[in-house]
Amino acid sequence: MKIILTSVLVDDQAKAERFYTETLGFVKKHDVPLGDTSRWLTVVGRNEPDGTELLLEPDGHPAAKQFKAAMVEDGIPMAQFGVDNVEGEHQRLNKAGVRFTQPPTDFGPVITAVFDDTCGNLIQIAQMKDQP
């Protein structure tokens, strides 16, 4: 068994597409209309076209918004992405107007930061120190 797809629940797929591609730098992989309003919308890492896909999934379920709000309130991220340089990403995203709830913080083996994806989620980026 392997993880081929994971998802974040977004409040607006068009907005999410812009943020995850234009701001974060992911690349759109699938975009298939599903019914009237929603799409099967996935992105992948820029250098990993065959890597794990991230599904930008509508948060239309009645329980989703309440759940997301409670997680955001306590600063809990809904997804984690690996980066080579947390400090560099923090500077780049800060300039792009992205709001961080946790600046780059050294936790020993890992440096992390947490930002708002503008679609109702917090996202953590992590840099493992002993890996290239």
Binding site: G75, I76, T101, Q102, T105, F107, V114
Partner: peptide, 10 residues
């Protein structure tokens, strides 16, 4: 000025 998440991580 930390969230509960950051505090627990620390």
């Amino acid at each position: 000025g930390q969230t509960l998440f950051e505090l627990c991580g620390r």
